[in-house]
Write a protein that binds this DNA or RNA. Sequence first.
DNA 1: TTGTACGCGTTATCAC
DNA 2: GTGATAACGCGTACAA
Lengths: 343, 343
Amino acid sequence: MAKKTITFDDIAQYTGFSKTTISRYFNRPDSLTKKNRKKIADALVELDYHENKVARILANGRTEFIGIIVPNLSLHYYSSMLDAILSTYERFGYKFIVFSGNDQEEMERQYMKELFAYQIEGLIVMSHTIPSKELASYDIPIVTIEREDLYTNSVNTDNYLGGVQATRILYEADCDIYIHVNSSLSETMPSYGRIRGFSDTCAELSLEHQIFSRELGSSYEQMEDSIHEFFNTVDTLYPSRRKGIFMPNDTYANIFCNLLFRKYRTFPEEYCVVGFDNSPVSRNSMIPISTIGQQIDLIAASAVEILDDQIKQRKAGTADKNQGLIHKVIPPVPVVRETTKKR
Amino acid sequence: MAKKTITFDDIAQYTGFSKTTISRYFNRPDSLTKKNRKKIADALVELDYHENKVARILANGRTEFIGIIVPNLSLHYYSSMLDAILSTYERFGYKFIVFSGNDQEEMERQYMKELFAYQIEGLIVMSHTIPSKELASYDIPIVTIEREDLYTNSVNTDNYLGGVQATRILYEADCDIYIHVNSSLSETMPSYGRIRGFSDTCAELSLEHQIFSRELGSSYEQMEDSIHEFFNTVDTLYPSRRKGIFMPNDTYANIFCNLLFRKYRTFPEEYCVVGFDNSPVSRNSMIPISTIGQQIDLIAASAVEILDDQIKQRKAGTADKNQGLIHKVIPPVPVVRETTKKR
DNA sequence: TTGTACGCGTTATCAC
DNA sequence: GTGATAACGCGTACAA
């Protein structure tokens, strides 16, 4: 009934060649005569052959798998990054086995075990739960993206520059006082750099500024509440002064802008707002929000490129175990919209 | 130097058992004595053994791979669906190889070829490019989600019910005229049902209603333009009547609401708006938008469950080739927010 | 240019 | 309860 799977043996029999020749047809076609190639090509169609890469893996060790662990896909940042990573298939040919972590550390270890069992050649980690030191202990090329990366290769946005850019956008709009809110980040988090970028730039330009450090919460309701409180504070603290607000991301910026609207029925001259990420919410907002965009495609491509290099080095036996870590940094891109108009 | 990989052979040597016993340790542990199990367990730790599922695949044929093809991950609907599918790992144990299609038909065929080469056991297709008839021609369990599904198993939202629910929300808010815009959908698209749900409900309740059918574009700018034009039409066509607007999705609904604000500086009594998808934009909007939510988790779980059933049937040889297609339908959930207040 | 023979790491089938 | 042996499908020295 169900014809058994067609293998090289079948093709060999059918064409009169040996298995080896069939194998070579796929791997080094030029080592066959054009005529014989045609003969085999015909046989493939005739027998309806489908290649089996699993067998190839067992024979030559190369899976062309890269594992990916993301924290979740509900945040646009992660899903667009994943999209960009998947798109590198056309350039590098790697196939991606994807897991979504959801902050469960033990579960993520289980994911890693599965990935290793399938002989992945490299791993991209975007989730934050497993320390980079532990990641580094696995004997496999790893790149982390926008997370603690003390012991791993990484690709990150130049967050410091992002902070600088955000501050400069506000500066161009000529505010009286400059304000940044953020949750109290660990200094090992790449995004910590934004805070430094902000305060350094303010200092450099001699701008009156203030940093509000407070937990902003994780659920949308919590975020709304904390931003609301922040808004009330700022609004009463600096009346009739033009306030330049640098929010930690676009979602917060949007909530803030909504509060402005509710109170003032328009986007008031007294405020300028800059977000971060250039996510859809920043341009879906009633007044499109100025923001700092990350170069997602570039980050993704760099991550896979680093892995690809290391994978090739391993294959060639050139793996300088002690060559030091790669920490690639990608500049962000300012996106000026309506919330930072000159006065 | 680099210790070669530890295999069953090594463990067998180390423990004095045979390869077979080691294999059984993993697959039918109860067939060993407790003492011997312990002995092997210790050896595994001692030798730092890591399982190799690729070899297992070659031997028993089960990859536990499911392939996924999404059109993109920038739309929240797709990324949250993917997230939900990945989360079924805990329940079913399947690993997912993911491709993002980007509407390139030939590229998607290439993806499918790769997936088959890796011996996937099932396939979930969310992209729209390849006709279901072609999909069905591949000899593998397939489930499609929210796309043309004439020849494949599928899981879809009950779009008709969604249309009914949206209309009823507007009806509860007591509008004078009911309006639905949509691009001219093919009747084979599941979402076509929403249009029917809308008009049937209007007819049933004897509501004055109108359907605007026009291309809404794919880029955000195009969308803005076409919604703007639609807004102008509606706003001038039915002055001083309370208009109940059912938009095809939340992004459109948000654009529409923004236009309302710009013109009226508030959300006017003259309008009610319902979106579709319950995506973040619907609650990030200045006035949280009423919408129809799809049960993403349920859809995802159902899709994997159907695949799992069919995969098991195949393994058991119970595959009734002609048992007919499964078209599972999941009811949506109305989410009433601020844009459909009673007057 | 082509073929032979063996290895990759596991599971399945029998036997004991 | 355990072991020997043959698959699984392909790659690759080495030989011809």
